[in-house]
Amino acid sequence: QRITLKDYAMRFGQTKTAKDLGVYQSAINKAIHAGRKIFLTINADGSVYAEEVKDGEVKPFPS
Results as ranks from 00 to 15, higher is better:
1 Q>N: 14
1 Q>E: 15
1 Q>L: 12
2 R>W: 15
2 R>L: 10
2 R>A: 08
2 R>Q: 11
3 I>Y: 12
4 T>N: 08
4 T>Y: 04
5 L>I: 06
5 L>Q: 00
7 D>Y: 05
8 Y>A: 03
8 Y>P: 01
8 Y>S: 01
8 Y>E: 01
8 Y>Q: 01
9 A>G: 03
9 A>E: 07
9 A>M: 12
11 R>T: 11
11 R>C: 11
11 R>W: 11
12 F>G: 01
12 F>K: 03
12 F>A: 04
13 G>E: 01
14 Q>F: 13
15 T>L: 13
15 T>F: 11
15 T>P: 11
15 T>G: 11
16 K>S: 05
18 A>K: 02
19 K>G: 07
20 D>R: 06
21 L>Q: 00
22 G>M: 06
23 V>S: 06
23 V>L: 09
25 Q>L: 10
25 Q>R: 11
26 S>K: 09
26 S>C: 15
27 A>I: 15
27 A>P: 02
28 I>S: 00
28 I>R: 00
28 I>H: 00
29 N>V: 14
29 N>M: 13
30 K>E: 15
30 K>L: 12
31 A>L: 14
31 A>W: 12
32 I>C: 03
32 I>K: 01
32 I>Y: 02
33 H>Y: 11
35 G>F: 06
35 G>L: 08
35 G>A: 10
35 G>C: 07
36 R>Q: 07
37 K>E: 10
37 K>C: 11
37 K>Y: 07
38 I>E: 00
38 I>W: 00
38 I>A: 00
38 I>N: 00
38 I>R: 00
39 F>Y: 13
40 L>E: 00
40 L>V: 15
40 L>N: 00
40 L>Y: 00
41 T>Y: 15
41 T>F: 12
42 I>P: 04
42 I>A: 04
42 I>T: 06
43 N>A: 10
43 N>S: 11
43 N>V: 08
44 A>S: 12
44 A>C: 09
45 D>N: 07
46 G>I: 02
46 G>P: 00
46 G>Q: 06
47 S>F: 10
48 V>H: 03
49 Y>Q: 09
49 Y>D: 07
49 Y>F: 13
50 A>V: 03
50 A>S: 04
50 A>G: 13
50 A>D: 00
50 A>P: 02
50 A>E: 00
50 A>L: 03
51 E>N: 06
52 E>G: 01
53 V>I: 14
54 K>I: 15
54 K>S: 14
55 D>Y: 08
55 D>G: 10
56 G>L: 06
56 G>M: 07
56 G>T: 07
56 G>I: 04
56 G>S: 07
56 G>V: 04
56 G>R: 06
57 E>C: 12
58 V>I: 14
59 K>C: 10
59 K>S: 11
59 K>Y: 15
60 P>E: 07
60 P>D: 05
61 F>R: 02
62 P>C: 04
62 P>A: 04
62 P>I: 04
62 P>D: 05
62 P>Y: 04
63 S>P: 11
63 S>H: 11
